[in-house]
Amino acid sequence: MTNAKQGTAVPAIQISGLRKRYGSVTALDGLDLRVEQGEVHGFLGPNGAGKSTTIRILLGLLRADGGEARVLGADPWASAVGLHRRLAYVPGDVELWPNLTGGEAIDLLGRLRGGINRARRDELCDRFDLDPRKKGRTYSKGNRQKVALIAALASDVELLLLDEPTAGLDPLMEAVFQSCIREATAAGRTVLLSSHILAQVEVLADRISIIRKGSVVESGSLRELRHLTRTSVSVMTEHPADAITSLPGVHEAHHDGEQLTFDVDGEAMPVVMRELASLGVTGLTATPPTLEQLLLRHYGDELAAGVGNGNGNGSKAPAGVAR
C-alpha cells in the first residue's frame, strides 16, 4: 500500500452531512464519510440503507439536497466529467445494450472514460472467464457484472467506485475479484467497495464504514470496530473460574463440560485476562466478532422485530417505478 501518499494528500472521498430525499422518503440523512487515498474502504450496510444513492451523488448523477461531497478534492456535481476521467464505476445492477457484445461494451466504456489498456483488458477477460463475443442481452447477471468490472479494472484510474460488484459472481470469480482489488491497491488506487456481503469486505477492506438508514453509524478499521464488540471466549482453567462470570462486561457465560464459554466486551478484556491468568489457564480459544455480528448489533433490534423488512427505508431505491 502506498502510505506515502497519505497525510499530505487530500482524501479520495470526503462527505459531510450529506442529505438526499425522494419525495417523502429520506435516502440520506446527514451522512459523513472519509476515504483516504490508497485505501480499500468497505461501505457496508443492508439493502436500502443509501449506499447506491451515496455513490451516485459521488458520481454527479444525483444532486445532493444538502451537505457537502468532495471526490479527489473536487465537487462531483460541478466537475463530473473531469472527475470521471480519474475514476471508474461499477453499478450494482449492470444493464448492457442488447445488441452490443460484451467486448464492445467493455471497449466503449473504457474509451469513453479516456482509454483502455488492451492487454490488461484481454487478461481480465481470461481471468474472469468472460466470453466477450456474446450479445449483451444473452448475458446472465453475473456475466453483465463481469463486463462492467473488466471495463473498470482495465482503465488506468485513481479511484474505483464499486457498488456491490460481486453480488452475482460465484466463489471462484470472487477470488479473482479479490486478487484484482489487491493489484489495484498495490498500484496505488483507492477503492470504495459497497457491499452487504461481509466476508468480502472483511478480506479486502482497510477501513469500514457502516451505513444504516442514510447515515454512517460506525467508521474505522476492522480492529477499531471490533473494539466496540464482544469477543467469544472458551477457556479451561485449573481453578474454578466462576468469579469471571460476575465481572462487568462479561455476558452469557455458561459451562460446557470442562470449558467455560462467555462473551467479553472489548473494554473489559484486559481485566478479564488478568483474572483468568491467575486461575491457571490450560486452554483458551477466543473468536473475534465477524462483521455479521457487528451488523447484528446495530440492527439487532430490527432483526428481532421482523427480519424480512429490516431496513426501514423500504426497497432499494424509490426510482424503481421508472416504467
Binding site: T101, G103, E104, A105, L108, R111, R133, K134, K135
Partner: peptide, 23 residues
C-alpha cells in the same frame, strides 16, 4: 436465436456520437 458478435468494438465506436449512431 441470438448470434455471437465481435470480441472487440470497432475503432470508430469511441465517442458519445458514435454510440448514439450505433444505437
Amino acid at each position: 436465436a441470438a448470434r455471437r458478435g465481435s470480441a472487440y468494438a470497432p475503432s470508430w465506436l469511441s465517442s458519445p456520437f458514435a454510440l448514439a449512431f450505433r444505437l
